[in-house]
Design a protein around this nucleic acid. Structure first.
Length: 812
DNA sequence: AACGGACGGGG
DNA sequence: GTGTACGTCCGTT
């Protein structure tokens, strides 16, 4: 592979080969690649060759090859098994690029040599940090400079959504009874298997449908976590082959583990892959979206679809446990439901996969990998490796940096607790990348300066795409494309700093550089804080790149904005302080724990201290009211809210469900019974008291403390009413019997009628767990008076309407 | 307060 | 084997 003179930063970003329309790549370690390219409705597969390669720190492990190892581009290279290229770089780097016509032969030779050198057998090259290697597809893409989707729009992709309805969550206990299939070319149908005998045919039909519709992409929500593992298990049990691959590649769906066990003993995610088609799990996209936006109540398909406004008004909702029972009564309804599911997945894909699509046009990885990868190790690092490979430069090798002090973080200040009005939030846009740019802080080991060039070029391009979004017709495909591109670029830009601070597994990590960025960041925030203080603002809290402060009462928004602009003007060029928003009031409790009241009356609560993890419904209701009253300075209202809820508890007006807490239990029955005498826990006691002797760890238990000191279980009717059906449908030949497991029947009294809770206990909880969240807003004696049971004033009390919260205000 | 383990999500 | 790492919350010391 020839090396190239200085590469342009556009090559760093986009590769260099102009081949358009690549929708999938499959490669093996023997240097064979299949490249599927789309042009309109046509997909053609081209065969390509590449020379398998990897980076090595030395040639020691290849000495045993003798003349079968030769320097590239020498006469001896013609007869060599493995060729090497010595790269420009420091001695402790990956200074050799090894190439062979067979990647497997290359690895075998290295493993043999390492075995001899170390005197122990080596399972995998990944166990040796003497080598840096990527997968075959990545080798091909990095070497060729190709990327996916060149000159393609997202709408040109042929996508198919597949969703299974099953009789249970566990493929050992249940089976597939329906598949809903939809594609971007207008298909929408369900395949049914009303009887267990039909399941094998359903699976085979589905595979045939995939092959005939021939999509580039297969999508679903939790595809890797549920549908594919379930499908695989059922197909194996029924002896059906999963022929989902695209000709002329291998046909079968393949499973692999997300990472080698030797590197990480934690949870390994199962993944699947198939030749010629990209498998996309929209849940990955949802996670990535929520990581930035933090606006999702959950990651469930139905919840997310509602938030994004893609749930149709006629959408059918069924509780998971009821789907199969419903199907037997009303199959049409379940077909409707399942088709709604795949329609929502399509909607989610259109909304969320644009950015990964754009990233796949930059990073040398498969679209399906890019869409689930983290931006740093998953995107940025492959781009850097491609740049070094292209330039013929040695990759840096992380020296073990043991015993370093932990990497220092951003500034974090709590200036005041209490209640503020006229609150302004100002923050510095893209602080860390801006600092990297401004002060040219990149990893010292990045001799090409590629990371900084990538950040700089991306920052410029991103602004261009943001402009292009504004210039394009709103809602148009063009606007969408530019939006996706700028979002993708933002993701990479923001990951650059984190990448430098990443541990030793990041090739280009540089703790000192990361520390330098945070140090400069603290400097900038300190400057902003000082400038605000000098202008008489009342500071509340500051965190890394943003600050909350109270402006003088009665200021108009324009005045606030002018002040922020004035402070912004004192910062170095390239560092932009922005006016982010204003709030009617703020309750400052602890750092990162506060409540905000917007000018249109919305309550925003941030931080764990202001959320109760156990969250008894009555407490949450009260807390929200208490926060509103406190922020309004309405102590009478606060006292009234407290008295109202305390009275409702005392008179048992509240149903027990309002006082119940919901916990997830973790111990199996034996474990709890063993520990029980030492330490009783409410949830288990409640189950035992209800006569239950078995339960599953992970079950959610809703329970409350009763007047008699015991605990009472409140089953969730919906979750418990229908238990999963028994699994052995093949042996029995039918599966139409709903089996309740060996639980006793539910108590006859409906749960919401129960009132036998421990009044004193819950009055205590009300004060300590919930009223306590506004404690910081009051002087101790005022707080004690506000939440004292009974109505009589104490000797030294002042009238409640004269109690004031602790105000955070500008000096007059 | 610090640490380790489990969950999410899917029917 | 088509490949390198999740945050967050909960329960326990």
């Amino acid at each position: 592979m020839p090396t190239h003179p200085p590469t342009s930063s556009d090559e760093y970003l986009f590769g260099w080969d102009a081949t358009p329309g690549i929708v999938s790549v499959w490669a093996d370690r023997e240097g064979r690649a299949l490249v599927w390219r789309r042009s309109g409705d046509q997909v053609r597969c081209e065969r390509a060759r590449f020379r398998p390669w990897l980076f090595a720190a030395s040639l020691d492990d290849l000495a045993h090859l003798g003349p079968r190892l030769a320097a590239a581009e020498t006469p001896a290279a013609a007869h060599a098994l493995i060729t090497y290229r010595e790269l420009e770089g420091p001695p402790d780097s990956y200074r050799f690029l090894l190439e062979a016509s067979s990647g497997r032969a290359l690895e075998r030779a290295l493993l043999f040599g390492a075995h001899q050198r170390l005197g122990r057998s080596i399972a995998s090259l990944y166990d040796l940090d003497d080598y840096y290697r990527v997968g075959a597809v990545e080798q091909y893409l990095m070497q060729s400079g190709r990327v996916y989707f060149r000159a393609m729009a997202y709408t040109e992709l042929h996508r198919m959504q597949i969703d299974f309805e099953t009789t249970a969550l566990d493929p050992q206990r249940g089976r597939i009874f329906m598949a809903a299939v939809r594609d971007t070319q207008g298909l929408a149908l369900t395949l049914d298997a009303p009887s267990p005998a039909d399941e094998a045919a359903l699976i085979a039909d589905l595979c045939a449908l995939v092959r005939s519709r021939d999509p580039d992409v297969i999508e679903n929500h939790n595809l890797f976590g549920f549908d594919l593992p379930f499908l695989e298990a059922r197909a194996a049990r029924l002896g059906v082959q999963l022929n989902l691959g695209r000709a002329p590649g291998p046909r079968l769906l393949e499973r692999y583990s997300d990472m080698p066990a030797s590197y990480y003993s934690g949870r390994r995610r199962e993944r699947f892959t198939v030749a010629g088609r990209e498998l996309i799990d929209t849940m990955d996209a949802v996670r990535r979206h929520d990581f930035v936006a933090r606006d999702l109540p959950s990651h469930r398909l139905k919840d997310v679809a509602r938030v994004f406004g893609i749930a149709s008004p006629e959408r059918v909702y069924l509780a998971g446990a009821e789907v199969y029972a419903t199907y037997r009564q009303n199959p049409a309804l379940v077909r409707h439901y399942a088709l709604d599911d795949v329609a929502e997945v399509d909607g989610l894909s259109r909304q969320l996969l644009g950015a990964p699509f754009a990233l796949a046009g930059m990073a040398p990885r498969r679209y399906e990998r890019v869409s689930s990868a983290g931006p740093a190790m998953g995107i940025l690092e492959p781009m850097l490796v491609r740049a070094y490979l292209r330039a013929g430069a040695a990759l840096p090798r992380q020296q073990q940096q043991r015993g370093l002090p932990p990497h220092s973080g951003g500034a974090l200040y709590l200036f005041a607790t209490g209640v503020a009005e006229q609150v302004v939030k100002a923050d510095i846009a893209s602080l860390y990348p801006s600092l990297m740019r401004l002060y040219q802080i990149g990893p010292a080991c990045d001799r090409l300066g590629a990371l900084l060039q990538i950040v700089e070029r991306l920052t410029d391009l991103r602004l261009q795409h943001k402009d292009a979004v504004r210039a394009a017709p709103p809602g148009s495909a063009l606007a969408h494309t530019h939006h996706a591109l700028q979002a993708a670029m933002k993701l990479i830009i923001n990951s650059a700093y984190g990448y430098m601070g990443a541990g030793e597994m990041a090739l280009f990590a540089d703790r000192n550089a990361a520390d330098e960025v945070t140090r400069r960041g603290r400097e900038v925030l300190d400057h902003v804080v000082a400038a605000l203080r000098a202008r008489g603002m009342a500071l509340i809290e500051g965190d890394t790149d943003g600050v909350y402060f109270a402006a003088p009462r009665g200021w108009a928004e324009a005045q606030e904005r002018a002040l922020v602009a004035e402070v912004a003007a004192t910062l170095p060029a390239g560092i932009r302080l922005e006016y982010e928003g204003r709030y009617r009031a703020m309750l400052s409790h602890e750092v990162k724990n506060y409540a905000l009241l917007t000018y249109d009356g919305q309550l925003i609560v941030r931080g764990v201290a202001l959320r109760s993890s156990r969250a008894e419904p009555f407490g949450v209701r009260f807390l929200h009211e208490a926060l509103r009253c406190t922020m309004a300075g309405d102590t009478l209202g606060l006292r009234a809210a407290y008295e109202r809820i305390a009275a409702a508890i005392r008179t048992r007006e509240l149903p027990a469900a309002e006082l119940a807490t919901r916990v997830r239990i973790s111990k199996p029955p034996e474990a709890y019974l063993a520990a029980r005498s030492a330490h009783k826990e409410a949830a288990y006691e409640a189950l035992l008291a209800a006569g239950r002797t078995t339960w599953q760890p992970g079950e959610r238990v809703r329970c409350y403390k009763a007047q008699d000191g015991g605990y009472v279980w409140l089953p969730d009717e919906r979750e418990e009413a229908i238990r999963e059906e028994a699994g052995d449908d093949e042996a029995e030949g039918f599966d139409d019997i709903l089996q309740l497991d060996d639980q006793p029947p539910l108590p006859a009294a409906a749960a919401d009628d129960r009132r036998d809770y421990d009044v004193e206990h819950y009055l205590q909880v009300l004060v300590t767990s919930y009223a306590g969240r506004v404690r910081k807003a009051f002087a101790p004696e005022d707080f004690a008076q506000l939440f004292r049971p009974g109505l009589q004033l104490g000797l030294f009390d002042q009238p409640i309407d004269q109690i004031e919260p602790h105000w955070i205000r500008c000096a007059e």
